[in-house]
Design a protein around this nucleic acid. Structure first.
Lengths: 331, 331
DNA sequence: CCTTTGTGAGGGAGCGCTCTCTTCATGATC
DNA sequence: GATCATGAAGAGAGCGCTCCCTCACAAAGG
């Protein structure tokens, strides 16, 4: 008992396969009475086109891959970035009639599979998320010739359009804000230095401090809460007199606030804290977290739109979205 | 300039298409010298099988759909549940060589598309996540005849295997813990009552309280932080003398803690708080949150394995995973 | 009147693979 | 030496669709 085919519909409607195909694909060159006839047969039989047969001949799949190339995929279970980015991108793609294949390219094995998958033209395009510096995947994917965009600026030169937020500007805003608040010993908790967002944010921090003749106090985290807590403990040891800290994302800021609490420091009285991203949780810390709002969802949606444009043959150029300082009680 | 086909490989290796197909699919009935010959041709030409052609004849796609049927998809941007579930399931499917198609079935439109998509046999199976009571999608999907499992027990009778955690047992543990701590006026913040997890948790809360002759104090949220805060404010108004609250998930517990702080109540001195899920953020509240650990990732992985078993023709029965109370300083 | 142009419908090749069936070679058995 | 079982390789028929080409017919133009 097999599903009905184009041919079955054609027979029932008393027309040719070609005509049914035209109706199903919405081509205008079909007389309306014939169209009705065909549609009736389609409904009667419950006909649904076979996507494999279709894409065999059209060489399209109408689906795209979202590849999250993140070694830590699996370590941090609840980074809001993943959820926000994947959902925003999915919405955008689905609205354009593209299906989303999600691939976690955490292990080398998975990266190889992802490459194969894309090279097999299983998808019409690829959106790459969160790549580290040494990651060979972007280049491998670019080499397949499949349209590709990156969510976030790649760390090394690669001819791939990307969308990012203004990491440099955002971080500079955060540090200037702390200076304006009269803070004098401003530390930072950076993200992994093989990620462009972390590079840009710490770069701006250093830049602003050196403009005003102040020295940097740096600890490195990996964008997780626990790494933020550990980095903060380290910073307090390095410079017990610090009076402010700029964390390169909100999760690390949250970790830092816990470490400060445990060390008996009050926020913001003793130490001011500023984060980055403005995730929902930043509203619920005690005190609520001052942070730089990065348009994560919009960035993902823009990446998706960039890829969709690419698929339509439009040219694509990098996009940088503005950020905005959101002042709350932690600073 | 087209990609090499099976035929091209066969010609180059001087064998038939059938033999190449056997080698590519790892069939054992090929002499090893011929196998080497073919593999060399495959590598020389960079041959990768065309998945559309393959699935046209095999009627398999080697991919499955993860359908998140959540009306609020898009409202709450950073629910860790989405991230945890999607990642755990993806890992499991990818390890089994299945690709994951992610579909957000938030709108009616998207639900229709998801149904069509599945009915077109675009995927070999479906894992459904987070369904509300009135959702017509589960039944529609079940009617397509495509193997289907549900992450979380469906609200209404439906012959679909599912995996859930022990919501009743977990919630009962939480409430008993509060009683043991000497709390007398225990309120609850429930999730939406059209979700089975919310139903079970509030059911257990009522059950335990009525066993000990205490009355219920209930407010309804929707599993978001803000709804937790609002519900807590409502509860304080309803019963200013309450001394404990059991929130049906951690996000609402976090919201409740903010509301308590704003109302000038100390946690746990004035009001004890217990959450549910044990998300990472529960470790970073002030004070750290007592909660019921639900094995979210394991539940998703188990759902995925259940579906994989179904695809292999194995029978599938509902699974209930145990929970565990994690006592921290909020109670 | 015949020719040209346009429009709508049908015919059928072919997309790249799998899988059944057939053929052939080899060695074992009697 | 004839027969048979066994294993490995080849042949080729589809899978269900799209899309180019052809064709019939009608209307317009010379």
């Amino acid at each position: 008992m097999r599903r009905p085919t184009l041919e079955a519909v054609a027979t029932r409607a008393g027309v040719s396969k070609s005509t049914v195909s035209r109706v199903v694909n919405g081509e205008p060159t079909v007389a309306s009475d014939i169209r009705d006839l065909v549609m009736r047969a389609v409904n009667d039989l419950g006909y649904i086109p076979n996507p494999a047969a279709r894409s065999l001949v059209t060489r399209r799949t109408d689906s795209i891959a979202v590849i999250v190339s993140d070694p830590s995929a699996g370590l941090v279970s609840d980074d809001p970035m993943f959820s926000t980015v994947v959902r925003a991108a999915s919405r955008e793609f689905e609205a354009a009639g593209k299906q989303v294949m999600l691939m976690l390219a955490g292990s080398d094995d998975a990266r190889v599979r992802a490459r194969q998958f894309v090279a097999a033209r299983h998808v019409d395009g690829v959106m790459l998320v969160s790549m580290h510096g040494a990651d060979p995947l972007p280049a491998a994917l670019a080499a397949t010739g499949v349209p590709l965009v990156s969510h976030g600026r790649p760390t090394f030169r690669l001819d791939v359009p990307w969308v990012d937020n203004d990491n440099t500007g955002g971080a500079a805003q955060a540090v200037r804000h702390l200076l304006e608040r009269g803070r004098r010993r401003i530390a930072t908790i950076s993200g992994p230095l093989d990620m462009s967002a972390a590079q840009d944010r710490i770069g701006a921090y250093r830049e602003v401090l050196s403009e005003t003749g102040r020295r940097s106090i740096v600890a490195i985290g990996d964008f997780t809460r626990i790494s933020g807590a550990e980095a903060m403990a380290q910073l307090l040891e390095d410079d017990p007199a610090l009076d402010a800290v700029f964390a390169a994302n909100d999760l690390m800021a949250i970790g830092a606030m816990r470490a400060l609490r445990r060390a008996g420091r009050r926020v913001p009285d003793d130490v001011a804290v500023v984060g980055y991203d403005d995730i929902e949780a930043a509203l619920y810390t005690d005190p609520p977290l001052t942070t730089v709002r990065s348009p994560m969802g919009e960035q993902a949606a823009a990446s998706a739109r960039l890829l969709l444009g690419l698929l339509r043959g439009e040219p694509a150029a990098p996009v940088i979205l503005p950020t905005q300082l959101v002042v709350r009680e932690s600073s």
